[in-house]
Design a protein around this nucleic acid. Structure first.
Length: 231
DNA sequence: GCGACAG
DNA sequence: ATCTTGTCGC
């Protein structure tokens, strides 16, 4: 029921993918949220080693209680290889299928990866945001590009990530004395809000609840433990 | 030219 | 991303 706009075909070569990113980047808008969000979705993908099958899933939760209110999952085939900087061409196609199965439209979407913290400022969160026409941001576990000073060890502290003079995201401590996660806006949201939402989704783990639950979901799907999904 | 390189 | 048990530190 949730819809999206297919802004371009996904069957492209790496060179065409880069050209598309250059063309799409001008449409990305980094700005404050238009409406106070009530729900947030977490997206993730899982694979079996050396296999092409993709297990994609989305978990939607309430921002006030962090209660899961909906889950969707789909099984498909990877249409593109993993190439640093072109992750969206490998993961978004299947995530759109999972998105289409949602009955509720999430107010904001969190991705396992980056938004503007990308060499061309259009990581998976930004790219998907254009298709979904909805606020999106990335929360990655490692850096693709950018430098930063280590944030203080307390949960909630953060420091800006910069790349060629631009502030592209933040290294955010989500748990005391634990490695930071890397937050960056995707589309229709700003960095401060993305950081705030990430801290709001605390479940006591380094990884925020939306993507953590999505990760658990797709792994269960891959292991055949969720026959109720992707049917 | 040599490394680095989201998931 | 995935393959995997124990183990070091607070």
């Amino acid at each position: 029921m949730a819809h999206y706009q297919l802004l371009h075909d996904w069957a492209v070569s790496p060179a065409e993918a880069i050209a598309l990113q250059q063309q799409l980047r001008s449409q990305i808008r980094i700005e404050p949220l238009a409406e106070p969000p009530k729900t947030i979705a977490g997206c993730d993908i899982s694979f079996n080693k050396f296999e092409e099958t993709v297990y994609a899933g989305i978990v939607v939760l309430r921002l006030d209680t962090l209660e899961t209110i909906e889950e969707t999952g789909v099984i498909s085939t990877a249409p593109f290889p993993y190439i640093p900087g072109l992750l969206s061409f490998r993961e978004i196609p299947s995530l759109l299928q999972a998105w289409a199965r949602l009955k509720t439209e999430p107010d904001v979407v969190m991705f396992d990866g980056h938004g503007t913290a990308h060499p061309r400022r259009i990581g998976i969160a930004s790219h998907a945001g254009l298709f979904l026409n909805r606020p999106t941001f990335g929360c990655g576990k490692s850096v693709l590009v950018g430098k930063y000073n280590d944030p203080a060890p307390e949960r909630g502290s953060w420091s800006p990530m910069t790349h060629y003079g631009d502030v592209i995201g933040a290294a955010l401590r989500t748990k005391n004395k634990v490695n930071p996660v890397y937050v960056s806006p995707g589309h229709l949201i700003d960095l401060e809000t993305a950081i705030s939402l990430t801290l709001n989704c605390d479940g006591g783990y380094r990884i925020p609840e939306p993507t953590r639950r999505a990760h658990n979901l797709v792994n269960a799907l891959r292991k055949g433990e969720r026959p109720d999904l992707s049917v």
